[in-house]
Design a protein around this nucleic acid. Sequence first.
DNA 1: AACATGCGCAACCGCTCGGAT
DNA 2: CATCCGAGCGGTTGCGCATGT
Length: 490
Amino acid sequence: MSLKSVQTGDEVLRKGPWMPEEDEILVEYVRQFGARDWSSIRTKGLLPRTGKSCRLRWVNKLKPDLKRSGCKFSPEEEKLVVEMQAKLGNKWAKIASCLPGRTDNDVKNFWSTRQKRILRALQRPKMPSGSTDASADTSDLSKDPQSTDFGGFQIHSPSGAASLIASGMGPHFIFAEGDNKFRDSATDTTRCQMLHQVHTFNSMEADDVLSSHHNLSDHIPAGKTSSTPTYLTDIKTVNMPTNPRTPMSSHSPFIRIFQIYDTIQNPKTGELGLRTCEKEPCTGMTKQGANRNPLTSLVEPLASAPPCVTIASRMTRTIKQRPRSRRETRSTTILSCFEHPVVETSDSGNDSNSFNSIARAPQSSSPAHSSFSSQLSLTDSTLPQSNSNTTSNNTSSNNNNYLEFLLQSNGSLMQNVQIFSPEFPLFLTTSQQWEKLPTLYSEDASLYSGCNSKDADSCSPDSVITNFTADVFDSLEPLNSAQSEWWVAQ
DNA sequence: AACATGCGCAACCGCTCGGAT
DNA sequence: CATCCGAGCGGTTGCGCATGT
């Protein structure tokens, strides 16, 4: 065992792992004098350790009633940590005070480890057999002109590491192990093609991802809570057509869709910012033969659900087309915001209608809902001038608004927002993607929205964020109830 | 079996803050 | 008011173990 010693003046301070004898001395000291005046331990010559070191040793290891080291956090503890972290931030001591036997260091390490685990789960998608990496998938897709009909979409949960997503061209969904029915069903060309785009997570990783979404409990309808973790109650199995324009058949693959919950706050108003949620089974999901885009199902809400928004994105360009500007590339990151509650959706078999019916859903009159609507309906006039100049069509304007909302809210919301574009290898980190932008679209450098600089290479997520003014929320108007063009394919 | 790698955790460091003296 | 000290936090390091090759 290595034990560092540091010479300080006449005395030698010991550092590093504690010896059992040292622990004994420390315990005896506390028994006699109490857990206080830690510096006197050294001045009394009892231990060649700093008071701070003694205190930490006592608090983290020797204090009675502490849980044994290596004692894993239980699901209940994890849930509590997640919830409290969402409420309090990184107030580890405060959080630990609610967890008997846990110290702030325990909680901090747990959180740190958990974050890393989630990140790994998100960045390490397991590709089904026959596919080696994400970029290969994209190139495979590009060979098939039908792929443009997929309209890729993403389910986005924009907080921190949990902005997990399904991405790229074609439907990507998260599903857990055990969906062999789906994999096995991919026997024809079309389904194989789709199969290439599905990112899989094993159950544990999926749990990590899902449990990372906090504030679940207060949105779960009464009677729905059970011994089952809430995030697991929301796994659904749906029939999903390989192509939204293709009627579902009995051969359609099954995919489990995890409902993603999340919240963010408008840093300026402190109000609820965004939440994806779905509380109840969607009746439309079970209709065989219904030509429903699975995304339609995803955004059907529970009638009593709080104001919430499902973020989804659908690529509007063919894979062989380059975005017309970098701006547009970014806007495909998060294309659309569906505002809840959605009263009803069209079951007409027309995907565009379905989506439009969602977009046109009547607005709730609840204050929170209205407020949130406003936040999401920034007009172009409230955005940096460059936006209106560089947004090449109406399709992305509302989406840009939402993007600006994210950008404005704070930097952390953007840190894991990923840019999904056919040209981008999937699962690059944000910074990696941004680094690639100038290379891919160098001639559009001046159009790089949000950046005042004409030098595209100087652009980064941070520069975008800092270049937005703080009063971007000052000019708000209600969402336009007119027909949305969000989902009108180009 | 040996080695490499990854992961979790204990412990530390630097810093800030607030209360006591 | 200045200083000291304890508490707390974010970040980091290094060790030991588990797992993979």
